[in-house]
Protein backbone atom coordinates (compact mmCIF):
# COMPACT_ATOMS: atom_id res chain seq x y z
CA UNK A 1 0.00 0.00 0.00
CA UNK A 2 1.43 3.28 -1.05
CA UNK A 3 0.51 6.14 1.14
CA UNK A 4 -0.24 9.36 -0.68
CA UNK A 5 0.54 12.69 0.81
CA UNK A 6 -2.30 15.16 0.73
CA UNK A 7 -0.53 17.14 -1.97
CA UNK A 8 -0.23 14.04 -4.20
CA UNK A 9 -3.87 13.20 -3.67
CA UNK A 10 -4.92 16.65 -4.85
CA UNK A 11 -2.69 16.37 -7.90
CA UNK A 12 -4.11 12.97 -8.72
CA UNK A 13 -7.68 14.16 -8.46
CA UNK A 14 -6.87 17.20 -10.51
CA UNK A 15 -5.40 15.02 -13.24
CA UNK A 16 -8.46 12.80 -13.35
CA UNK A 17 -10.73 15.77 -13.54
CA UNK A 18 -8.67 17.24 -16.35
CA UNK A 19 -8.71 14.09 -18.46
CA UNK A 20 -12.43 13.73 -17.92
CA UNK A 21 -12.92 17.30 -19.02
CA UNK A 22 -11.28 16.67 -22.40
CA UNK A 23 -14.41 16.20 -24.43
CA UNK A 24 -13.61 16.82 -28.05
CA UNK A 25 -16.11 18.00 -30.59
CA UNK A 26 -16.50 15.80 -33.69
CA UNK A 27 -14.49 18.36 -35.63
CA UNK A 28 -11.65 18.27 -33.09
CA UNK A 29 -11.73 14.48 -33.16
CA UNK A 30 -11.45 14.59 -36.93
CA UNK A 31 -8.51 16.98 -36.71
CA UNK A 32 -6.92 14.66 -34.18
CA UNK A 33 -7.39 11.61 -36.38
CA UNK A 34 -6.08 13.52 -39.40
CA UNK A 35 -3.06 14.59 -37.39
CA UNK A 36 -2.16 11.00 -36.64
CA UNK A 37 -2.50 9.98 -40.29
CA UNK A 38 1.02 10.28 -41.67
CA UNK A 39 0.05 9.55 -45.26
CA UNK A 40 -2.52 12.34 -45.28
CA UNK A 41 -0.09 14.82 -43.77
CA UNK A 42 2.48 13.89 -46.40
CA UNK A 43 -0.17 14.54 -49.04
CA UNK A 44 -1.02 17.94 -47.62
CA UNK A 45 2.64 19.00 -47.42
CA UNK A 46 3.24 17.77 -50.98
CA UNK A 47 0.29 19.78 -52.26
CA UNK A 48 1.48 22.94 -50.54
CA UNK A 49 5.00 22.52 -51.93
CA UNK A 50 3.79 21.75 -55.46
CA UNK A 51 1.39 24.68 -55.51
CA UNK A 52 4.08 27.05 -54.28
CA UNK A 53 6.58 25.77 -56.86
CA UNK A 54 4.09 26.22 -59.66
CA UNK A 55 3.05 29.70 -58.54
CA UNK A 56 6.50 31.09 -57.75
CA UNK A 57 8.66 28.98 -60.04
CA UNK A 58 7.90 30.61 -63.41
CA UNK A 59 8.99 34.02 -62.06
CA UNK A 60 12.45 32.63 -61.31
CA UNK A 61 13.06 31.34 -64.83
CA UNK A 62 14.83 33.48 -67.43
CA UNK A 63 13.51 31.58 -70.47
CA UNK A 64 10.33 32.06 -72.43
CA UNK A 65 8.47 28.72 -72.17
CA UNK A 66 7.46 28.84 -75.85
CA UNK A 67 10.68 30.25 -77.35
CA UNK A 68 12.12 27.87 -79.93
CA UNK A 69 15.93 27.64 -79.79
CA UNK A 70 17.28 25.41 -82.53
CA UNK A 71 20.83 25.53 -81.15
CA UNK A 72 19.64 23.66 -78.07
CA UNK A 73 17.44 20.93 -79.54
CA UNK A 74 17.35 18.06 -77.04
CA UNK A 75 20.20 19.65 -75.11
CA UNK A 76 21.54 17.60 -72.21
CA UNK A 77 20.97 18.92 -68.70
CA UNK A 78 23.51 21.63 -67.90
CA UNK A 79 23.94 24.67 -65.67
CA UNK A 80 22.21 26.76 -68.34
CA UNK A 81 19.32 24.34 -68.79
CA UNK A 82 18.91 22.38 -65.57
CA UNK A 83 16.74 19.66 -67.08
CA UNK A 84 17.88 20.09 -70.66
CA UNK A 85 15.70 21.08 -73.60
CA UNK A 86 12.93 19.46 -75.62
CA UNK A 87 12.84 18.69 -79.34
CA UNK A 88 12.37 22.38 -80.19
CA UNK A 89 15.12 23.56 -77.87
CA UNK A 90 12.71 24.94 -75.29
CA UNK A 91 13.92 24.86 -71.69
CA UNK A 92 12.31 21.81 -70.09
CA UNK A 93 12.22 23.14 -66.52
CA UNK A 94 10.58 26.40 -67.61
CA UNK A 95 7.93 24.53 -69.55
CA UNK A 96 7.42 22.16 -66.64
CA UNK A 97 6.65 25.06 -64.30
CA UNK A 98 4.40 26.87 -66.77
CA UNK A 99 2.69 23.63 -67.72
CA UNK A 100 2.11 22.93 -64.05
CA UNK A 101 0.13 26.15 -63.74
CA UNK A 102 -2.17 25.09 -66.55
CA UNK A 103 -2.54 21.49 -65.39
CA UNK A 104 -3.20 22.43 -61.78
CA UNK A 105 -5.54 25.25 -62.69
CA UNK A 106 -7.56 22.98 -64.98
CA UNK A 107 -7.58 20.20 -62.38
CA UNK A 108 -8.62 22.41 -59.46
CA UNK A 109 -11.26 24.45 -61.27
CA UNK A 110 -12.92 21.50 -62.97
CA UNK A 111 -12.99 19.58 -59.68
CA UNK A 112 -14.52 22.63 -57.98
CA UNK A 113 -17.09 23.08 -60.73
CA UNK A 114 -18.04 19.41 -60.80
CA UNK A 115 -18.42 19.23 -57.03
CA UNK A 116 -20.66 22.31 -57.08
CA UNK A 117 -22.81 20.84 -59.81
CA UNK A 118 -22.86 17.42 -58.16
CA UNK A 119 -23.77 18.85 -54.75
CA UNK A 120 -26.56 20.92 -56.25
CA UNK A 121 -28.10 17.99 -58.11
CA UNK A 122 -27.52 15.55 -55.25
CA UNK A 123 -29.03 18.02 -52.77
CA UNK A 124 -32.13 18.59 -54.88
CA UNK A 125 -32.65 14.85 -55.40
CA UNK A 126 -32.08 13.98 -51.75
CA UNK A 127 -34.11 16.85 -50.33
CA UNK A 128 -37.19 16.69 -52.52
CA UNK A 129 -37.27 12.94 -53.10
CA UNK A 130 -40.12 11.44 -55.11
CA UNK A 131 -40.34 12.33 -58.77
CA UNK A 132 -37.55 14.94 -58.61
CA UNK A 133 -35.25 12.32 -57.12
CA UNK A 134 -36.26 9.71 -59.68
CA UNK A 135 -35.71 12.02 -62.65
CA UNK A 136 -32.44 13.47 -61.41
CA UNK A 137 -31.00 10.06 -60.54
CA UNK A 138 -31.97 8.57 -63.90
CA UNK A 139 -30.24 11.55 -65.49
CA UNK A 140 -27.19 10.90 -63.30
CA UNK A 141 -27.16 7.26 -64.39
CA UNK A 142 -27.35 8.39 -67.99
CA UNK A 143 -24.33 10.68 -67.63
CA UNK A 144 -22.46 7.86 -65.89
CA UNK A 145 -23.25 5.68 -68.90
CA UNK A 146 -21.55 8.06 -71.30
CA UNK A 147 -18.01 6.89 -72.02
CA UNK A 148 -16.10 9.92 -70.79
CA UNK A 149 -12.80 9.83 -72.64
CA UNK A 150 -14.10 8.97 -76.13
CA UNK A 151 -16.83 11.57 -75.74
CA UNK A 152 -14.41 14.29 -74.67
CA UNK A 153 -12.19 13.41 -77.61
CA UNK A 154 -15.14 13.66 -79.99
CA UNK A 155 -16.16 17.00 -78.51
CA UNK A 156 -12.61 18.22 -78.92
CA UNK A 157 -12.88 17.59 -82.66
CA UNK A 158 -16.13 19.50 -82.90
CA UNK A 159 -15.22 22.51 -80.77
CA UNK A 160 -11.49 23.20 -80.82
CA UNK A 161 -11.22 23.42 -77.04
CA UNK A 162 -10.02 26.44 -75.11
CA UNK A 163 -8.84 25.73 -71.54
CA UNK A 164 -12.12 27.12 -70.18
CA UNK A 165 -14.11 24.83 -72.45
CA UNK A 166 -12.00 21.91 -71.31
CA UNK A 167 -12.69 22.70 -67.65
CA UNK A 168 -16.42 22.92 -68.26
CA UNK A 169 -16.52 19.68 -70.23
CA UNK A 170 -14.53 17.71 -67.65
CA UNK A 171 -16.78 19.05 -64.91
CA UNK A 172 -19.93 18.23 -66.88
CA UNK A 173 -18.88 14.59 -67.10
CA UNK A 174 -17.49 14.20 -63.59
CA UNK A 175 -20.29 15.41 -61.33
CA UNK A 176 -22.38 12.20 -61.07
CA UNK A 177 -20.31 10.47 -58.40
CA UNK A 178 -20.48 13.47 -56.07
CA UNK A 179 -24.20 13.87 -56.76
CA UNK A 180 -24.80 10.30 -55.62
CA UNK A 181 -22.80 10.75 -52.42
CA UNK A 182 -24.45 14.03 -51.48
CA UNK A 183 -27.87 12.59 -52.23
CA UNK A 184 -27.38 9.58 -49.99
CA UNK A 185 -26.14 11.84 -47.18
CA UNK A 186 -29.22 14.05 -47.61
CA UNK A 187 -31.48 11.03 -47.46
CA UNK A 188 -29.97 10.10 -44.08
CA UNK A 189 -30.06 13.65 -42.72
CA UNK A 190 -33.62 14.27 -43.84
CA UNK A 191 -34.98 11.80 -41.30
CA UNK A 192 -33.05 13.21 -38.34
CA UNK A 193 -34.95 14.96 -35.57
CA UNK A 194 -33.24 18.31 -35.86
CA UNK A 195 -34.12 18.51 -39.51
CA UNK A 196 -37.74 17.63 -38.80
CA UNK A 197 -37.78 20.25 -36.07
CA UNK A 198 -36.40 22.84 -38.44
CA UNK A 199 -38.99 21.93 -41.01
CA UNK A 200 -41.73 22.18 -38.41
CA UNK A 201 -40.72 25.77 -37.72
CA UNK A 202 -41.57 26.49 -41.34
CA UNK A 203 -38.18 27.32 -42.75
CA UNK A 204 -37.96 27.71 -46.50
CA UNK A 205 -36.51 24.94 -48.64
CA UNK A 206 -33.50 27.02 -49.62
CA UNK A 207 -32.75 27.84 -45.99
CA UNK A 208 -33.20 24.22 -44.96
CA UNK A 209 -30.72 23.07 -47.58
CA UNK A 210 -28.20 25.85 -47.10
CA UNK A 211 -28.11 26.14 -43.32
CA UNK A 212 -29.01 22.67 -42.07
CA UNK A 213 -28.32 19.97 -44.61
CA UNK A 214 -25.42 21.23 -46.70
CA UNK A 215 -23.11 22.15 -43.79
CA UNK A 216 -23.62 18.67 -42.37
CA UNK A 217 -22.68 17.13 -45.71
CA UNK A 218 -19.54 19.19 -46.01
CA UNK A 219 -17.27 16.31 -45.01
CA UNK A 220 -18.47 14.13 -47.89
CA UNK A 221 -18.20 17.07 -50.26
CA UNK A 222 -14.64 17.95 -49.23
CA UNK A 223 -13.40 14.36 -49.54
CA UNK A 224 -14.99 13.89 -52.96
CA UNK A 225 -13.64 17.23 -54.14
CA UNK A 226 -10.10 16.36 -53.05
CA UNK A 227 -10.20 12.98 -54.76
CA UNK A 228 -11.69 14.42 -57.93
CA UNK A 229 -8.87 16.96 -58.29
CA UNK A 230 -6.55 14.01 -58.95
CA UNK A 231 -8.98 12.50 -61.43
CA UNK A 232 -9.42 15.69 -63.39
CA UNK A 233 -5.67 16.29 -63.56
CA UNK A 234 -5.26 12.81 -65.03
CA UNK A 235 -8.17 13.45 -67.40
CA UNK A 236 -6.69 16.75 -68.61
CA UNK A 237 -3.21 15.32 -69.10
CA UNK A 238 -4.53 12.27 -70.95
CA UNK A 239 -6.60 14.45 -73.27
CA UNK A 240 -3.69 16.80 -73.86
CA UNK A 241 -1.38 13.86 -74.52
CA UNK A 242 -3.84 12.55 -77.11
CA UNK A 243 -3.93 15.99 -78.72
CA UNK A 244 -7.51 16.73 -77.66
CA UNK A 245 -6.89 19.00 -74.68
CA UNK A 246 -4.59 21.98 -74.15
CA UNK A 247 -3.10 22.82 -77.52
CA UNK A 248 0.63 23.51 -77.99
CA UNK A 249 2.57 25.75 -77.83
CA UNK A 250 0.92 26.41 -74.45
CA UNK A 251 2.55 23.87 -72.18
CA UNK A 252 0.64 21.45 -70.00
CA UNK A 253 2.10 18.35 -68.38
CA UNK A 254 0.02 16.21 -70.70
CA UNK A 255 0.88 17.79 -74.04
CA UNK A 256 4.58 17.97 -73.14
CA UNK A 257 4.50 14.17 -73.49
CA UNK A 258 2.97 14.24 -76.97
CA UNK A 259 6.34 13.84 -78.68
CA UNK A 260 7.93 11.87 -75.87
CA UNK A 261 8.07 8.66 -77.87
CA UNK A 262 10.31 10.19 -80.51
CA UNK A 263 12.52 12.06 -78.05
CA UNK A 264 12.84 9.61 -75.17
CA UNK A 265 15.72 7.63 -76.66
CA UNK A 266 17.95 10.71 -76.91
CA UNK A 267 16.49 12.92 -74.16
CA UNK A 268 14.86 10.63 -71.59
CA UNK A 269 14.04 13.51 -69.25
CA UNK A 270 11.49 14.91 -71.72
CA UNK A 271 9.52 11.70 -71.20
CA UNK A 272 10.17 11.26 -67.49
CA UNK A 273 9.80 14.72 -65.94
CA UNK A 274 6.27 15.80 -66.94
CA UNK A 275 4.77 12.42 -66.07
CA UNK A 276 6.53 12.39 -62.73
CA UNK A 277 5.00 15.77 -61.93
CA UNK A 278 1.53 14.46 -62.81
CA UNK A 279 2.09 11.37 -60.68
CA UNK A 280 3.31 13.36 -57.67
CA UNK A 281 0.47 15.88 -57.85
CA UNK A 282 -2.27 13.29 -58.25
CA UNK A 283 -0.69 11.14 -55.57
CA UNK A 284 -0.66 14.09 -53.16
CA UNK A 285 -4.35 14.81 -53.69
CA UNK A 286 -5.27 11.12 -53.35
CA UNK A 287 -3.24 10.79 -50.14
CA UNK A 288 -4.96 13.83 -48.70
CA UNK A 289 -8.42 12.75 -49.86
CA UNK A 290 -8.05 9.28 -48.40
CA UNK A 291 -6.70 10.68 -45.13
CA UNK A 292 -9.62 13.10 -44.85
CA UNK A 293 -11.99 10.24 -45.58
CA UNK A 294 -10.52 8.27 -42.68
CA UNK A 295 -10.49 11.32 -40.44
CA UNK A 296 -14.19 12.13 -40.78
CA UNK A 297 -15.34 8.56 -40.18
CA UNK A 298 -14.94 7.61 -36.51
CA UNK A 299 -15.64 3.96 -37.31
CA UNK A 300 -12.48 3.81 -39.36
CA UNK A 301 -10.26 4.71 -36.42
CA UNK A 302 -7.74 2.00 -37.11
CA UNK A 303 -4.73 2.48 -34.91
Amino acid sequence: MVAFTKRQMVDKLDETAKSAAVVRSPFQQAVHRFHRNTVAKVGLVMIIILVLIVIIGPFCMKYDPDAVDLYNVRAKPSVEHLLGCDDLGRDLLTRLLHGGRISMAVGLTSALLSIMLGSLIGAMAGYYGGIVDGLLMRFTDLVLTIPTLPLLMTLAVIFKPSPVFLVVMIALLMWPSSARLVRSRFLTLRELDYVRAARATGESDARMILTHLLPNSLDVIIVTATLSVGNSIIMESTLSFLGCGINPPTASWGNMLQNAQSTMATAPLTAIAPGLMILLTVLAFNFLGDGLDDAIDPKRDKR
Binding site: L257, I272, L283
Partner: peptide, 25 residues
Protein backbone atom coordinates in the same frame (compact mmCIF):
# COMPACT_ATOMS: atom_id res chain seq x y z
CA UNK B 1 -1.80 -0.72 -49.49
CA UNK B 2 -0.01 2.64 -49.87
CA UNK B 3 1.49 1.24 -53.09
CA UNK B 4 -1.97 0.83 -54.58
CA UNK B 5 -2.17 4.63 -54.39
CA UNK B 6 0.54 4.76 -57.01
CA UNK B 7 -1.57 2.56 -59.25
CA UNK B 8 -4.58 4.83 -58.84
CA UNK B 9 -2.59 8.03 -59.29
CA UNK B 10 -0.51 6.87 -62.26
CA UNK B 11 -1.43 8.42 -65.61
CA UNK B 12 -1.58 5.22 -67.65
CA UNK B 13 -0.17 6.72 -70.84
CA UNK B 14 2.93 7.82 -68.95
CA UNK B 15 3.29 4.42 -67.32
CA UNK B 16 3.29 3.00 -70.84
CA UNK B 17 5.97 5.47 -71.95
CA UNK B 18 8.17 4.59 -68.99
CA UNK B 19 7.82 0.84 -69.61
CA UNK B 20 8.79 1.43 -73.24
CA UNK B 21 11.74 3.51 -72.13
CA UNK B 22 12.96 0.80 -69.75
CA UNK B 23 12.13 -2.50 -71.44
CA UNK B 24 12.20 -1.60 -75.12
CA UNK B 25 14.55 1.36 -75.53
Amino acid sequence: TPLTFFGISMPSFWFGLILQLIFAV
